[in-house]
Design a protein around this nucleic acid. Structure first.
Lengths: 210, 210
DNA sequence: GTCTATACAAAGATAGAC
DNA sequence: GTCTATCTTTGTATAGAC
């Protein structure tokens, strides 16, 4: 009988079966992230997991379903930085900016492929991603309010996009930057470390200077 | 006999055969850009071109070869804005900045999928892209010199990445920005029009304000 | 040069033994 | 739960008629 029909019962009785299911997910993360959905073969995932191909279907029913789970994880990773910081009413605007930059650089240094993966998979196949990430979880945020308070003349969305662009874009563009001989692979890490200070400094120039 | 063996002769004799070959390329641009290399089927391209599948192989030998031609075109489009502007010694730094922003926004408004396509295909399959975009065509550019002259304390590469991030990132991220309810599809065009003024203004804040 | 038909390989999914 | 073997679909490439 197929796994997905008895998942509930299993998870109530034994808590020890992380192993195989999690192994497959682990492998799927690696292969999907590296090659994208279409270029990934289920056989690659099975091999990466050191397991048999049939297990994929046993646990996840199809390539598509497995992918959707991984995809959701990754989208959430991307927003798990932005949403909590933007919505914390305890921190100042300056603190929020610093935190956003720091946390994104930390996250993306560990997962450099994350943004390009998420962005390109959404564009290539929008059906994979019909989710609706909490409506207005950002538009009503403390961050937006503080921005409007400080600079009512600036569109906060435009501002936020610039901040995210300065922070996230380098990771998205790094292969091309290297092709254009702007950066070597070695430099890149150092540069991003410097940007932890640089971006907040420049952002403050924009906000304070008039 | 196969086309690629007699291409030279043909192109010397008749100049009228744009039609079929160009139709295939046209279709390939559309389909590859929309779905990426792996998700594209040669049948899709043939259908999009209103032609038979066999013609693809007759004219381009393989899917791979056809793709490489399209890919090179697209990479060149991306750099055809940056390189000439950066290397023009006649314009001032401020003019260069304005031109870069204007020209990229114009280009990408017409081709919104361009950057994500180029970036993700390079990352997914680096073999497709072993090209060597003129070494140091940027490092020795007039743009870099002018930046160093004005602000010797700023790393010009870091600066350039910020400028490109503010300009190009919105196009890369627009599906996600829409998912996060930051922008609607309608707003997006207007926002990018506003950014033509906004980005140079902000960039000048960074350069002038100390 | 263009088409139809088809060969051939790759990849997703499943059946059934253990 | 896990494996081997196999079915089926899909996709690239080619042969050969016109």
């Amino acid at each position: 009988m197929h796994y997905y029909l008895c998942k509930k019962i299993r998870s109530m009785t034994t808590e020890k079966d992380k192993s195989t299911e999690e192994k497959i997910k682990e492998a799927a993360r690696i292969v999907f992230m590296k090659k994208g959905y279409s270029a990934t073969r289920t056989r690659d995932i099975a091999e990466e997991a050191g397991l048999n191909l049939a297990l994929l279907n046993y646990y996840f029913r199809s390539k598509e379903k497995l992918f959707q789970q991984i995809m959701m994880e990754k989208v959430q990773m991307m927003f798990s930085v932005l949403f909590p910081i933007a919505n914390n009413p305890e921190t100042s605007l300056e603190e929020k900016i610093t935190l956003l930059v720091e946390n994104y650089i930390t996250l993306l240094t560990k997962n450099p492929d994350l943004p390009l993966f998420v962005l390109s998979e959404i564009r290539n196949n929008p059906d994979h991603f019909q989710s609706k990430l909490g409506i207005n979880l950002l538009k009503d945020s403390s961050l937006i309010k503080q921005l409007l308070e400080k600079r009512p003349d600036i569109n906060p969305i435009q501002f936020l996009i610039s901040l995210l662009g300065m922070t996230i874009f380098p990771f998205v563009a790094s292969p091309l930057l290297q092709a254009a001989n702007l950066v070597t692979e070695n430099d890149f890490g150092d540069m991003m470390e410097q940007r932890r200070k640089l971006i907040p400094m420049w952002i403050n120039s924009i906000l304070d200077c008039r």
